[in-house]
Simulated scan of single mutants.
Amino acid sequence: MRTKISIDIIELESSNYHLILPSQFEGNKNAYWVIDTGASKSVFDKNLAGFILSEEGETEDLHAANMSEEPLKTSLGILNPLFFGKLKVDNMKVALLDMNHINELYQKVTDYKICGLLGSDFLLKYNAVIDYKRRMLKLSV
Protein backbone atom coordinates (compact mmCIF):
# COMPACT_ATOMS: atom_id res chain seq x y z
CA MET A 1 0.00 0.00 0.00
CA ARG A 2 1.23 3.47 -0.91
CA THR A 3 -0.06 6.79 0.32
CA LYS A 4 0.87 10.37 -0.45
CA ILE A 5 0.34 13.06 2.16
CA SER A 6 0.68 16.81 1.72
CA ILE A 7 3.23 18.40 4.01
CA ASP A 8 3.60 21.99 5.05
CA ILE A 9 7.02 23.62 5.15
CA ILE A 10 7.31 26.19 7.93
CA GLU A 11 10.11 28.74 8.16
CA LEU A 12 10.63 29.22 11.90
CA GLU A 13 13.52 31.61 11.44
CA SER A 14 15.40 32.82 8.39
CA SER A 15 16.45 29.69 6.44
CA ASN A 16 15.30 27.40 9.29
CA TYR A 17 12.65 25.10 7.85
CA HIS A 18 10.54 22.39 9.47
CA LEU A 19 8.33 19.87 7.69
CA ILE A 20 4.85 19.43 9.18
CA LEU A 21 2.87 16.26 8.53
CA PRO A 22 -0.81 15.94 9.45
CA SER A 23 -2.27 12.78 10.91
CA GLN A 24 -5.60 11.80 12.33
CA PHE A 25 -6.37 9.71 15.37
CA GLU A 26 -9.47 7.57 15.32
CA GLY A 27 -12.42 9.81 16.07
CA ASN A 28 -11.19 12.41 13.54
CA LYS A 29 -8.82 14.19 15.94
CA ASN A 30 -6.11 15.97 13.94
CA ALA A 31 -2.52 15.82 15.10
CA TYR A 32 0.58 17.41 13.56
CA TRP A 33 4.09 15.97 13.49
CA VAL A 34 7.47 17.43 12.65
CA ILE A 35 9.37 15.17 10.26
CA ASP A 36 12.80 14.88 11.89
CA THR A 37 15.14 12.91 9.64
CA GLY A 38 17.95 13.36 12.16
CA ALA A 39 16.06 11.75 15.05
CA SER A 40 16.61 8.05 15.55
CA LYS A 41 13.34 7.54 17.46
CA SER A 42 9.90 9.06 17.15
CA VAL A 43 8.77 11.19 20.07
CA PHE A 44 5.27 12.04 21.30
CA ASP A 45 4.08 14.73 23.72
CA LYS A 46 3.42 13.05 27.06
CA ASN A 47 0.94 15.84 27.86
CA LEU A 48 -1.47 14.37 25.27
CA ALA A 49 -2.34 11.37 27.44
CA GLY A 50 -5.68 10.82 25.69
CA PHE A 51 -3.84 9.59 22.59
CA ILE A 52 -1.53 7.21 24.46
CA LEU A 53 -2.86 3.65 24.53
CA SER A 54 -0.36 2.45 27.11
CA GLU A 55 2.77 3.66 28.81
CA GLU A 56 5.55 1.30 29.66
CA GLY A 57 7.10 1.87 33.05
CA GLU A 58 10.59 1.35 31.69
CA THR A 59 12.70 4.32 30.81
CA GLU A 60 15.26 4.58 28.12
CA ASP A 61 18.06 6.98 27.35
CA LEU A 62 17.29 9.26 24.45
CA HIS A 63 20.23 11.10 22.96
CA ALA A 64 18.82 14.41 21.82
CA ALA A 65 21.04 16.84 19.99
CA ASN A 66 20.72 20.44 21.17
CA MET A 67 18.52 19.50 24.12
CA SER A 68 21.26 18.61 26.57
CA GLU A 69 24.69 17.06 26.74
CA GLU A 70 23.41 14.10 28.72
CA PRO A 71 20.84 11.62 27.41
CA LEU A 72 17.28 12.31 28.53
CA LYS A 73 15.42 9.66 30.51
CA THR A 74 12.12 8.98 28.80
CA SER A 75 9.29 6.58 29.21
CA LEU A 76 8.06 4.57 26.28
CA GLY A 77 4.51 4.60 25.05
CA ILE A 78 2.24 3.00 22.52
CA LEU A 79 -0.19 5.29 20.70
CA ASN A 80 -3.83 4.76 19.89
CA PRO A 81 -4.42 3.85 16.22
CA LEU A 82 -3.85 6.77 13.88
CA PHE A 83 -3.83 7.50 10.17
CA PHE A 84 -1.20 9.12 7.99
CA GLY A 85 -3.25 9.69 4.87
CA LYS A 86 -4.79 6.29 4.10
CA LEU A 87 -2.12 4.41 6.06
CA LYS A 88 -3.40 3.14 9.41
CA VAL A 89 -0.71 2.74 12.05
CA ASP A 90 -1.47 0.54 15.05
CA ASN A 91 0.66 0.23 18.17
CA MET A 92 3.18 2.93 17.23
CA LYS A 93 5.98 2.92 19.81
CA VAL A 94 7.30 6.32 20.81
CA ALA A 95 9.45 8.00 23.42
CA LEU A 96 7.32 10.24 25.63
CA LEU A 97 8.60 13.75 26.35
CA ASP A 98 7.13 17.07 27.43
CA MET A 99 6.93 19.06 24.20
CA ASN A 100 5.69 22.36 25.63
CA HIS A 101 8.98 24.09 24.69
CA ILE A 102 8.54 23.05 21.04
CA ASN A 103 4.95 24.27 20.94
CA GLU A 104 5.97 27.61 22.47
CA LEU A 105 8.43 28.03 19.60
CA TYR A 106 5.79 27.14 17.00
CA GLN A 107 3.16 29.48 18.49
CA LYS A 108 5.32 32.41 17.44
CA VAL A 109 4.90 31.66 13.71
CA THR A 110 2.02 29.22 13.22
CA ASP A 111 -1.18 27.85 14.67
CA TYR A 112 0.03 24.24 14.56
CA LYS A 113 0.16 22.39 17.84
CA ILE A 114 2.83 19.74 17.47
CA CYS A 115 2.10 16.32 18.96
CA GLY A 116 5.42 14.71 18.12
CA LEU A 117 8.51 14.21 16.01
CA LEU A 118 8.62 11.47 13.40
CA GLY A 119 12.07 9.94 13.53
CA SER A 120 14.02 7.53 11.38
CA ASP A 121 12.40 4.51 13.04
CA PHE A 122 9.06 5.49 11.45
CA LEU A 123 10.53 6.87 8.22
CA LEU A 124 12.50 3.67 7.52
CA LYS A 125 9.65 1.34 8.47
CA TYR A 126 7.31 3.03 5.99
CA ASN A 127 9.91 3.67 3.26
CA ALA A 128 9.35 7.42 3.44
CA VAL A 129 10.23 9.62 0.50
CA ILE A 130 10.08 13.39 0.87
CA ASP A 131 9.24 15.28 -2.30
CA TYR A 132 10.11 18.89 -1.48
CA LYS A 133 9.06 20.26 -4.86
CA ARG A 134 5.53 18.84 -4.58
CA ARG A 135 5.44 19.19 -0.77
CA MET A 136 4.49 15.55 -0.36
CA LEU A 137 5.52 12.64 1.81
CA LYS A 138 5.17 9.19 0.27
CA LEU A 139 4.79 6.21 2.59
CA SER A 140 4.55 2.54 1.64
CA VAL A 141 4.43 -0.85 3.33
Rank of each mutant, 00 (worst) to 15 (best):
L76E: 05
D36R: 14
P81E: 01
S23L: 06
L62Y: 12
N100Y: 06
F84S: 01
F51T: 01
L79Y: 00
E60C: 14
L123V: 06
E70D: 13
L123D: 02
T37S: 15
A31K: 08
L72A: 12
S68W: 09
F44L: 05
Q24A: 07
M99I: 09
A128K: 03
Y17A: 07
D111P: 09
G119F: 03
G77T: 00
L124P: 07
S75M: 09
P71G: 08
T37I: 14
Q107R: 13
S42K: 05
V43A: 01
D111Y: 09
L96Y: 00
L118E: 02
N16P: 00
I114D: 04
L76V: 15
P81S: 01
L72P: 08
S40L: 15
T3A: 04
L118S: 00
K73H: 13
M67F: 14
D61F: 15
T3I: 06
E104K: 15
I9A: 08
Y126P: 05
V43W: 00
Q24L: 07
P71L: 08
R2D: 11
V129G: 05
N100I: 08
V129P: 06
N100D: 11
I7P: 00
I78W: 03
V34R: 06
K4C: 10
H18W: 13
E69H: 12
I52E: 01
L105P: 05
A128P: 12
E60S: 15
L79Q: 00
G50Y: 08
T59R: 14
C115G: 13
M1E: 09
T110E: 06
N91W: 07
N100G: 06
D121L: 10
A49R: 11
V94F: 01
R134C: 07
S42E: 02
N30P: 10
G116E: 02
C115W: 08
L48W: 04
D131V: 04
F83S: 07
K125F: 07
I5C: 05
D111Q: 12
G57S: 09
L118D: 00
I35D: 02
V109A: 08
F25N: 00
D90F: 10
E56L: 13
L62W: 10
S23N: 05
A31Y: 06
V129Y: 09
L72F: 11
S140Q: 10
I102K: 07
E69V: 12
A31N: 09
G85L: 07
S120P: 03
E11V: 07
K73A: 13
V34H: 05
L105N: 09
F51D: 01
Y132S: 04
S120H: 11
L97M: 14
G50E: 13
I35Y: 01
Y32N: 13
E13H: 09
E58T: 14
I52P: 00
F51M: 07
K86I: 10
F84W: 04
T74S: 10
D8I: 13
N66E: 13
Y112R: 09
Y32V: 03
S15H: 14
Y132I: 07
G116L: 03
M67L: 15
A64T: 15
D98V: 14
